[in-house]
Design a protein around this nucleic acid. Sequence first.
DNA 1: GTGGAATGTAAGTAAATATTTACTTTGTCA
DNA 2: TGACAAAGTAAATATTTACTTACATTCCAC
Lengths: 211, 211
Amino acid sequence: MAPERSAPRARTRQYRSGDERRIEIVRAAIAIIAEQGLRELKTAELARRLGVSEATIFRHFGSMEEILVAAVRYEAALLRDRIEAFEGSGTPWERAEQLVLSLLDFFEETGGGPIVIVTGQVIRLSPEIREIAMKTIGLVRRRLAALANEAVGRERAAASGEQVANLLIAVIQSSALRWVMSERKWPMRANAEGMLEVLRQAVEAREGGVA
Amino acid sequence: MAPERSAPRARTRQYRSGDERRIEIVRAAIAIIAEQGLRELKTAELARRLGVSEATIFRHFGSMEEILVAAVRYEAALLRDRIEAFEGSGTPWERAEQLVLSLLDFFEETGGGPIVIVTGQVIRLSPEIREIAMKTIGLVRRRLAALANEAVGRERAAASGEQVANLLIAVIQSSALRWVMSERKWPMRANAEGMLEVLRQAVEAREGGVA
DNA sequence: GTGGAATGTAAGTAAATATTTACTTTGTCA
DNA sequence: TGACAAAGTAAATATTTACTTACATTCCAC
């Protein structure tokens, strides 16, 4: 039968451990930012989503600012783990492509959370948050640059590998942005695959190259 | 000599025509978003920047929402004009490169305003704003796609020109994001030039191509 | 099973923010 | 010149928002 007319709160309190609750809060915060934008992140909205009172949120965090820092830390850690766990197979270029696509799949799996870091949406919240975000993007960049450098071949100037890595980051950011802007209708993976195909030709041109 | 200790308002009222004032307001709004992010856009901050009272703002706009819509419209129009005015010279590919760099220069000249459209920062404010922003990006994309298609050559599948255009958009977005994230230290133009050089090779590989 | 610690919340409060009101100053044009 | 419209504002008001307090419930170690 129908539950309640419009239960303002779950009838029975949902007790959680502090750690669990903090993670719930952090994930809800990221979800709101990813789905509705930073402006819509409010304590009331957070409480509503979790089905708890606003006071509960402040039992576990001292301020909104703390929630934001924890949220960005949390997403950054997820992203870092994903990158470090990545292996891939085949040629360096194939692995670079796989990494890009794997990250985009990851964005989609996790509801777009890491996108708020990768597209700089949170960067102006505080210097601390900025640093975490920048460090994380730097990590992605270095990983891609390593693969790109291998793919391009060592005889060429190292700079070109960096530029290919920049392009791969650009593909990630652009695909993510288009996904968000299209209200998640435009698939990131398909979007990226088309661009990667073009890039592959540049890399092959370099390999076969002038030399 | 020193003006006032900390004049809370200009001693003499600054009268403007309604049209002028509305443009001032709209530009200040965009400047705040571009420099400090959407969260920092407040009527008080807007009034402070313009040296007028908050009531003045509401004489010219019915609500904050209206200001936002007007601001996005305004920036979109600037961007559209810039694209339509663009000519360029040389081969189609050279002109495509020039257009990308010209847009980045434009972002910098105008204090980063159009970036809030191109990187989707305002897209979730309202359906109306979303539509304006999407339309504008679509315009950029089509212009680049036309040039890219010419550059790639007609004998190849039309899809590839589209993909090259997507990459050019990606270069624009990524360069702009990096500029914003670096607190405007990382130069957009230099960043993009490196990537364009790599892309050129892909296009040339296509031209000379398998055929 | 009990008592203290952890978790939860209803009902606040204070500050911030958008918006309105009632009134003043300035421009303009007949 | 004077009167009407347009622009400006100080001082409210209404609402939203982050955060607190005082108390209730649940967990868990003993």
